[in-house]
Amino acid sequence: MGCASSKQFKRTSGYEDPDILAKETTFTVNEVEALYELYKKISHSIFKDGLIHKEEFQLALFRNSHKKNLFADRIFDLFDQKRNGVIDFGEFVRSLNIFHPDTPMEEKIAFAFRLYDLRGTGCIEREELKEMVLALLNESDLLLSDDAVEQIVNQTFKQADMNGDGKIDPDEWKIFASKNPALLKNMTLPYLKDITMAFPSFVLISGASDDEL
């Protein structure tokens, strides 16, 4: 059978049962299997150990395994829920689930908060926000004076820090993000809605439908 060879790919120790992952997420079993196709590709791009290392994540995002990027680093660290320096398949699927178009907005808001809470203090502090703006400027070759950066940070805090204590707490963030839905645009990946179309090789391999599973 022509499609049998793809099945010979050894599933690594990080592989988790698609039935369980589908139950825990918005994805169907077929979609979890299709995500495995993507996962295999990324996790074998450099180290070939079936786990996604930061360099492989960067390579997939930027076509460059050495590109330093604060925000890609943050996303990698949040995907790496076990904090062991790599992303396994279960972590990959559960984390991507946040970015699914059908995932409730509250989950996206909570994930974005953790992304911005650089030091994990439970609040987004002024210094953290300034650090992120400076990282963005550095990344984009935009030139802004320190005064202009201060102004942007002050303005943002004026809007978001409702009790004026100099930090944005999760409740303030929830209100602020709900009022500014454009902030969460990157928290939804339309690709995830049609993941089996993006990786049609899976459909040939499995031959199974979600009705059957």
Partner: peptide
């Protein structure tokens, strides 16, 4: 004109855009 740092970051940072993961085909 209001300027929102989070808006700036989320709309401009390439590291915040995961669509690259799906475009490596």
């Amino acid at each position: 004109r209001t300027c929102n740092a989070f808006q700036l970051i989320s709309s401009m940072s390439s590291g915040f855009d995961l669509s690259g993961l799906f475009e490596s085909e």
